[in-house]
Design a protein around this nucleic acid. Structure first.
Length: 575
RNA sequence: GAUCUGAUAGCUCAGUUGGUAGAGCAUCUCCCUUUUAAGGAGAGGGUCCAGGGUUCGAGCCCCUGUCAGAUCACCA
C-alpha cells in the first residue's frame, strides 16, 4: 500500500478509520429522502413559510468554526445554503463527540452529509439551517480545490486550469457553478428543440453510427473493423442519407440528435466527436425550412433566456427574433468584395480568388473556390442571424438544383456572429441527377480532393423508389450551445472533450519489487526514489543499480544494511 | 502540422546576476456561541513536468521530450 499519498489524503483516510471506530458507517447503504433543496428553503423562507423539521442532502463545501458554534455550507444540485451547527444542540448530553470530533475534526470539505433542522435568518441576514442532527452519507478522501467568492463577487483561488478542468470535469462541476450552468443550458437547448419538433408531430429516430459507407458529408472518417463480418466499418460523419431513406419509407418528418465523428484536427472549435441535429420534412422546400428554422431558434432562445430573444455574446448583442434577412451567396460576395462571379468560368473565379489574396490549388473546383472566397471575405461580416442562400451546384452534391437557375442549388446556411450555425437544402430527390452528382464527386476525388463524397449505391436505390419533395436541415449543437452560452471554445460545452492520454499513474506497489526478491525496506526506498516499475529498475546494469541504491542509502543516511552485489544480481535472475 | 507561451505544496501563484525553495487558501494543534474570502496564535507539507548538458553549484541558462493554452493552417 505505497500509494504516495499527500498529507491531506492520509489525514482523511485516518478520519475515515476513526468514524468506523466510533461506529459511524462513512458509506451507509440506506436511502435518505430530502424534504427540500437548498434553493427551495431560501425561496420559501423568503415568502414567510415556517420551515421546521426539514432535511437536506448535499456536499459540504465550507466550514467556519468558531469554538462552540460553527457555520458550514451545503451544496446540492440546485445551489448552496449555509448551515449553523451549535455544540449543545448537536450534542445535548454530556458526550460532545458528535460536535467536537465528528463535525469539527472528522468531516471534511467534499463530504456528503444529510442534515435535519429548521430554517432561520442569521444576524448577518443570511437564510440558514439550524442543524439539530446530521449524518455522514459519503466520505471524501481526496481534497477538493477550495474556491471562494467574496462579497463583491470576486473569485479567489479559482480552479481555472483548462487541462485539469477538462480532464477532471467532475471537479470542475463541483467547484465551478458557471460550468454546471453551461451544461444545464445545453440540455435546455436540446429539450426546447425536441419539444418544438414533437409538437409538430415529427418523429425522433436513431440511425446507424457504424456505417459501411461514410456518406452525407465531406470529411475524413474513423475506420474500425467488424470481426464476425470481416469488413471495415466507419464511424458516421453524417446521418443524412439514412434519414432520407426513412422519408422514402413513408415517414413525413424525422429528426435525430446525432453524434458524428470526423478524423480531423482538434482545436477550440473542433472535437473528434460532436453533436448535430438533423431534421427532414416531406412536401417542404428550403423556403419553408428557413421560416421553420428561424421560428424554432427564436423559441429556443426565448426558452433559455426567460422570454428574451436577445443573447449577449462577447461585446455583441444578438437578436434571434424572426425573421432573418436572406441574402444570395453571390450577392454577398459581390457586396463584400466588389466581384460579381455570376457566369464566370472556373479559371476566372480562380483569378478573382488570387487577386483577393486567397491561396488556391489545382484540386479546387469552382464550388470550393467560391466557398473559399465567401469563407475568407464575407462569413465574418454576418453578426446578426442571416440566411445565405443559393449555393453553386458544385458545392452541394445532395441538394436539389435551383428551380430558376440550374447552376445553383436550393440551399441555405444560417450565419450568426460570423459563424455557420445551420445548413439546409431542398433535398435532391431526382435519382438520375443524384447519381451524376456522385460521379462528379468521384472525379474530384480522383483529382486529389480527399474529402469528396463516396457513392452510396443503396441510397441511390432508395431514391429510385421515389422520395417526396423534402427539405432537410442540420444544426451543430455544440456550436449553437457555445453561441448561446457565450463560450469561445467547444471544450467548454462538452462534458468530456477529447484529450491526449494522461501519463499513466504509477501502478506498481511494493509487492512487484518484493516478488523479485527485494527486501521490503529496499522496495519502499526504490518506489520513493522514483522507479515506477520493476521493468524500469532492471533496465540498468546490476552494478550500476547496486551503486545507485547504496548511494541513496548513504545520501539519506538510511539505517538499513548496505546491498551486496550478489543480492542485486539475484533480482535480475528472478525476472 | 507550424509558431509562441506555460508546467513550482491539495488549489491559486511568487521566486532577484545561477548561491539553503516562498506566500495566500486548504491541512494539523490551540483560542473563539450568529460567522461568511470569519478572525487570532503556532506547526507540518515539495520528484520545482521528464531526461540530458553547462557549472564548484541549476527552479532559473542550453538541448530533447511530454502535456496544456494561444495564434495560424484544415474542418463543422
Amino acid at each position: 500500500m505505497s500509494l504516495n499519498l499527500s498529507e491531506q489524503e492520509i489525514v482523511r483516510r485516518e478520519a475515515l478509520k476513526k468514524l468506523r471506530d466510533m461506529g459511524i458507517d462513512p458509506y451507509p447503504a440506506e436511502q435518505i429522502e430530502r424534504t427540500h433543496y437548498s434553493t427551495e428553503i431560501k425561496k420559501k423562507f423568503e415568502q414567510g413559510e415556517e420551515l421546521k423539521d426539514v432535511r437536506l442532502n448535499g456536499r459540504l463545501m465550507a466550514k467556519r468554526i468558531m469554538g462552540k458554534a460553527s457555520f458550514a455550507e451545503l451544496q446540492d444540485a440546485l445551489g448552496r445554503i449555509q448551515l449553523y451547527f451549535n455544540r449543545d444542540d448537536i450534542s445535548p448530553g454530556e458526550d460532545k463527540s458528535m460536535y467536537n470530533d465528528v463535525f469539527k475534526k472528522l468531516l471534511d470539505i467534499g463530504d456528503f452529509i444529510s442534515v435535519e433542522g429548521f430554517a432561520f435568518r442569521t444576524q448577518m441576514g443570511e437564510i440558514s439551517i439550524h442543524v439539530a442532527s446530521f449524518k455522514v452519507l459519503s466520505k471524501s478522501i481526496r481534497p477538493l480545490p477550495v474556491v471562494k467568492t467574496d462579497a463583491s463577487g470576486n473569485t479567489h483561488d479559482a480552479f481555472a486550469d483548462p487541462e485539469q478542468r477538462y480532464r477532471q470535469r467532475y471537479v470542475d462541476l463541483i467547484v465551478n457553478e458557471q460550468a454546471r450552468e453551461t451544461f444545464m443550458t445545453r440540455t435546455r437547448i436540446v429539450n426546447a428543440m425536441r419539444e418544438y419538433f414533437n409538437k409538430d408531430g415529427y418523429m425522433e429516430v436513431e440511425t446507424p453510427i457504424l456505417q459501411p459507407i461514410p456518406g452525407g458529408a465531406a470529411a475524413r472518417p474513423f475506420v474500425t473493423h467488424h470481426n464476425a463480418l470481416d469488413i471495415p466499418l466507419y464511424l458516421r460523419i453524417a446521418n443524412e442519407l439514412y434519414l432520407k431513406r426513412l422519408i422514402v419509407g413513408g415517414y413525413e418528418g424525422v429528426y435525430e440528435f446525432a453524434k458524428d465523428f470526423r478524423n480531423e484536427g482538434m482545436d477550440r472549435t473542433h472535437n473528434p466527436e460532436f453533436t448535430v441535429l438533423e431534421i427532414y420534412v416531406a412536401y417542404k422546400d428550403y423556403f419553408w425550412m428557413m421560416d421553420y428554422t428561424e421560428k424554432m431558434l427564436e423559441h429556443v432562445v426565448r426558452n433559455i433566456y426567460d422570454g428574451s430573444s436577445r443573447v449577449r455574446l462577447g461585446d455583441m448583442d444578438i437578436d434571434f427574433k424572426a425573421p432573418y434577412p436572406r441574402i444570395k451567396l453571390l450577392d454577398a460576395i459581390k457586396a463584400h468584395t466588389g466581384y460579381d462571379l455570376r457566369g464566370m468560368q472556373e479559371n476566372e473565379i480562380r483569378n478573382v480568388a488570387e487577386s483577393l489574396g486567397i491561396e488556391t490549388n489545382p484540386t479546387m473546383g469552382k464550388g470550393k473556390l467560391i466557398d473559399e472566397i465567401f469563407g475568407e471575405k464575407c462569413e465574418a461580416k454576418f453578426i446578426q442571424p442571416t440566411f445565405i442562400v443559393d449555393y453553386p451546384v458544385e458545392m452541394s452534391p445532395l441538394c436539389k438544383k435551383h428551380r430558376n437557375d440550374p447552376t445553383l442549388t436550393e440551399r441555405f446556411e444560417l450565419y450568426v456572429n460570423g459563424k455557420e450555425v445551420a445548413n439546409a437544402y431542398s433535398e435532391l430527390n431526382d435519382p438520375i441527377d443524384q447519381r451524376e452528382r456522385f460521379e462528379e464527386q468521384l472525379k474530384l476525388s480522383e483529382k486529389g480532393d480527399d474529402e469528396a463524397m463516396f457513392i452510396d449505391q443503396d441510397f441511390l436505390r432508395a431514391l429510385e423508389y421515389g422520395m417526396p419533395p423534402t427539405s432537410g436541415m442540420g444544426i451543430g449543437i455544440d456550436r449553437l450551445t457555445m453561441m448561446l452560452t457565450n463560450q469561445s471554445s467547444i471544450q467548454e460545452v462538452l462534458f468530456f472533450p477529447q484529450m491526449k492520454p494522461e501519463k499513466q499513474a504509477q501502478v506498481s506497489d511494493i509487492k512487484d519489487f518484493t516478488n523479485l526478491g527485494v527486501s521490503e525496506a529496499w522496495a519502499e526506498i526504490i518506489l520513493q526514489s522514483g522507479w515506477s516499475s520493476p521493468e524500469e529498475l532492471l533496465e540498468l546494469k546490476p552494478t550500476q543499480l547496486h551503486q545507485k541504491l547504496n548511494g541513496i542509502r548513504k545520501k539519506k543516511k538510511l539505517n538499513i544494511p548496505a546491498l551486496q552485489i550478489s543480492e542485486v544480481e539475484s533480482w535480475f535472475k528472478a525476472e
